[in-house]
Write a protein that binds this DNA or RNA. Sequence first.
DNA 1: GGCCTAGAAGAAACCGATTTCTATCCCTAG
DNA 2: CTAGGGATAGAAATCGGTTTCTTCTAGGCC
Lengths: 342, 342
Amino acid sequence: MARMSTRPAQRVTIAHVAQEAGVSRATVSRVMNGLATVDPEIGKRVREAAAKLNYSPSTVARSLAIGRTQTVAIVVPDLANPMFQETLRGLSRAAAREGYRVLVADSIENPDEEVILAREARRRCDALVLVSPRMDVAHLGELLPELAPVVLVNRESPVPGVPSLAVDYGAGIRSILGELARLGHNRIAYLAGPETSHGNQRRLDALHSLPASAPEVIEIPCGAMFEDGYRAREAVLGSGATAAVCFNDLVALGLLGALHEAGIAVPERLSVTGFDDIPFARFASPALTTVSVPQTELGEQAWARLWDLLNGREPEDDVVVTPRLEARASSGTAAAAATSVA
Amino acid sequence: MARMSTRPAQRVTIAHVAQEAGVSRATVSRVMNGLATVDPEIGKRVREAAAKLNYSPSTVARSLAIGRTQTVAIVVPDLANPMFQETLRGLSRAAAREGYRVLVADSIENPDEEVILAREARRRCDALVLVSPRMDVAHLGELLPELAPVVLVNRESPVPGVPSLAVDYGAGIRSILGELARLGHNRIAYLAGPETSHGNQRRLDALHSLPASAPEVIEIPCGAMFEDGYRAREAVLGSGATAAVCFNDLVALGLLGALHEAGIAVPERLSVTGFDDIPFARFASPALTTVSVPQTELGEQAWARLWDLLNGREPEDDVVVTPRLEARASSGTAAAAATSVA
DNA sequence: GGCCTAGAAGAAACCGATTTCTATCCCTAG
DNA sequence: CTAGGGATAGAAATCGGTTTCTTCTAGGCC
């Protein structure tokens, strides 16, 4: 049987080591944790016994005894999204420096599942990071206290004492629109994100409260993924807009791909902008004009807040990140684009 | 104190619920797990007590008692790499269907750290997935038995009984070279990946064992990331090659970006190919010619193997995926490109 | 009506660590 | 010479569940 060769030996516990070394379990524990003063001779004997038996302590038993798992969970709406991957990475690397590990839970854009997942994930871990929760504010307000310690990313906290690292989506949208206005665009298409997305709501709020002098904005329902942007080409072209402001970079890149296939010059006939500044944005051709959200850093900041909370310290103040405009080649002056209007 | 509002109430244990319902802890456990036959009246009382106290069982204690954590770990060399993100996603979603969660560990391309991480991660979880381990084959062979149940992704297993999901990198490279040869290229640059990457070794092996009729290959040290490809432009142009075969899609896209900035036409003056077919490849402009590795599916397959192992079943046979050529717009016929040679 | 059995719930052991409490030993100081 | 004190290591309680074993009750059958 091939499997036999890989079957691990019967688990070695602290009791086995204690017996082998001829000491009590307490002493083994002390030696393994380098605690108290233990006779060097005994310490040596214990370590040798542990090595001989290839002992490795049970993390689960240890967690139960000390009341900590040294693990935090992160709940994201969609693991396929580069933004959430960045947050995960930032969190994971920052937490690792403190010896903590990260458990991931992917709600697959399902707000109900999200609530269940968050509860369940929290029970397994010492703390929780909720990224862009899709649940409505009522659920969120109800849930947060029982999830504490918890940190919100990409959304404001409705509960005092729950730190949040938010992004000023409105400012981001306004800086993009400002840039496009400067370039002479006065008819702009907005490719909207998922309706459940809090970030999309904020972008829409910003669009709806623009001064009268701002460019006209046509809203086109779209989505959050490549494919959504790719499929939106005709809707955008049909709108007569000279620029397309996309919900995020993925949508923008999808649209760019579709435009390229149709031989439509960017930015000559249509300017395209994204949101987030994912790593690919800079390397797209044409390089994508977008606003940068330092998502990796938000992941690291989330860890810093959690670490404060876990140590009973008052966490640092909430942060509202203002995205920075990254004007690149995919946006240009609104020129003869009007010819595409009927 | 703002923090007070978020401090969770003293943990509610099964003993509290038992007392509240006036039954034993054993009965509460039976009710919570829907086991055995419990008097409906008592069941109701227990459930009410649990609800009233807002009881949620300790996963840690439960794990210790039943000897399972319902968690698996995945160790990747670099969380920033879309390929590994895909594997993670496939694994996470497949495991979730069985009620399992995933712990991530990022070795940041450090083979020593990788060994430590793998051991540590395994202790916390029921099983382990090692993705593209960078450690040498001796370490790997030594480590795998003690990590079992474990599954390898992107690398063959040197230990019988440890399932592996490998990619036939050689076949991938050969199909790319075949396509380029067909297009008339006879001087090709290979932008090599990290030296510790097993996948890179395999690609090199394939390149070194080509028939004499194959195109000439110039090897250029590069890397695995965007930036590496971006920086490689001059080396590629200086080599006089008419096509650049890149270690992976990231490198290819970085190179494409650099070429675009320099106004060098792709594929007219230089054909560029990638490896992996990450989601962005199709949407790049020009769309990237590459070979597809179904990494999400490998993640799902990894879960299937682990699930078999966890249930004492013989896992399905190892898989060696042959990447499929995706000929797109970034490769074309080798034409007047020879003019770039001195 | 009495005996046997099945079923339901409690008591207690267990999972594998940590940690408090206690007992012992040895050394020093009065 | 003995009481006090500090250092070590063992015994036992604890963490919060699960599960085996035991007890008790009630129902069925002769």
